[in-house]
């Protein structure tokens, strides 16, 4: 109980500690913006790029706060703006959620290395669900074919192109482990990434400056960078989105697995766990003693990858 309270304090403290400097910075910024706004508006009208409504929305979007600093009203407003913008810019009908984390929920994941057969259905489902860039073939999940006895995925082969499973090999999946003590969060200079109370490590894409410090800090290769504008075919776009999840990313921002925040906060399984035909992926609430994930932790042989680093991942491997 105590640790939870402390955590709550820490959550607000770490972002509020430089309140005065941020405020003065914003003040300066708004002055600069006011000076530049006249030029921008007239320039836009002459160029004829986009409607006035679209420009107004973009303008408001540009000056919104970090998601954690927003009030509930502001969150609703930005979500509404992004839905409208998607309609105006891409003619896409999306439903964006800003569903808050549920109380008494801490998400955890377990991966059965003796059941996974390397089919990679999970990888494909993840790409579809999270609107990942088809152009650069971005994937959150990696599956490696490993020699038995090996535990280091750097020794595994991800580009296997033959019928699976193969005898005397096993398959190991790597994705974001949503560490409780995540080094990526500490590395971020703009506080654009943080851990939500339900344990999901998320990114505010609008606050990411693309420095990739988090990518360098992550010992699990869990983060992906958008080197170009992400491309998703219109007919394959997943319209059910979350502000912190699978919404449209920009060029030059970081993204990562969010445990499918748009699904899991609605009680659904993540896309990878639902797609797995072998039942190797177990997902659930770590704080519920009756959950499947807790059964696995209690009754199976489990280990965490690179546990000795002290990042406290919420992702366990287990075997039968």
């Amino acid at each position: 109980m105590d640790s939870r309270k402390k955590e709550g304090q820490m959550k607000t403290n770490d972002i509020l500690e430089k309140k005065s400097t941020r405020r003065s910075f914003m003040k300066k910024l708004s002055i600069a913006a006011a000076a530049g706004s006249a030029g921008l508006v007239t320039g836009g009208c002459v160029g004829g790029s986009g409607s006035t409504e679209e420009m107004g929305l973009k303008w408001e979007e540009y000056f919104k706060k970090n998601y954690r600093m927003m009030t509930d009203k502001e969150k609703d407003e930005t979500v509404a703006r992004l839905e409208k913008l998607a309609k105006l810019q891409d003619d896409a009908n999306i439903q964006m959620s800003n569903q808050e984390p549920r109380e008494k929920v801490l998400f955890g994941y377990a991966f059965n290395i003796s059941r996974c057969k390397g089919y990679m259905d999970c990888v494909e489902a993840c790409v579809q669900e999270n609107n990942l860039d088809r152009n650069s073939k971005t994937q959150y999940i990696r599956i490696f074919e490993m020699d038995s006895g090996q535990q280091d995925p750097t020794s595994g082969d991800g580009k296997y192109h033959h019928e699976v499973p193969v005898e005397n090999k096993y398959y190991m999946g790597i994705q974001c482990f949503h560490c409780e003590n995540a080094p990526c969060i500490k590395a971020c200079p703009t506080k654009a990434t943080w851990r939500e109370p339900d344990g999901i490590v998320v990114v505010d894409y609008d606050w990411c400056i693309g420095c990739r410090y988090c990518m360098a800090a992550c010992p699990f290769w869990g983060r992906r960078f958008n080197w170009g504008e992400p491309e998703v075919p219109k007919e394959e776009l997943n319209p059910k989105q979350h502000y912190l999840g699978n919404r449209k990313r920009m060029k030059g921002v970081m993204e990562k697995c969010t445990f499918c925040v748009q699904r899991t906060r609605q009680g659904k399984l993540p896309a990878c766990a639902e797609a797995c035909p072998t039942g190797s992926r177990v997902f659930g609430n770590l704080l519920d003693p009756d959950s499947e994930i807790r059964y696995v932790l209690k009754h199976k042989k489990v280990f965490r990858f690179k546990e000795e680093l002290g990042t406290d991942p919420k992702f366990w491997y287990f075997m039968d």
Binding site: G118, Y119, E124, Q139, R142, H161, P277
Partner: peptide, 15 residues
């Protein structure tokens, strides 16, 4: 027993 089949896609190396 589960059947063998071709993987859906492939994974890039970790780096």
């Amino acid at each position: 027993a589960f059947k063998t089949k071709m993987p859906e896609t492939y994974s890039l190396p970790l780096d």
